[in-house]
Amino acid sequence: MKIIHCPVNGPRPLQEFYFGGQFRPLPDIAKAGPLSDAQWADYVFNRNGAPGVQKEWWYHTPSGTWFIAERDIVTDTFLRTYLFEEHGEDV
């Protein structure tokens, strides 16, 4: 069973976690202007499955902690985990 490092609780077994999907910031309408229907559909339906490092939402269920993980989806290795607040810029 995999071990995931929760930024708050440290290394815990995979069983305690819930996968929250790819980390995708909401489209910023204020900056980029309104989205066309097609652009919105792209945001809602399409995911990037290309091999490489992916940012993901993970949730540590017993403590109710959401955090972001950077995971290499080819080797299934967690490279880094951190809380949303520490995410900085591209939120």
Partner: peptide, 10 residues
């Protein structure tokens, strides 16, 4: 509830 926690943050 899990979703709400995430939305509150985001």
């Amino acid at each position: 509830y899990r979703d709400l926690q995430r939305w509150a943050m985001v």
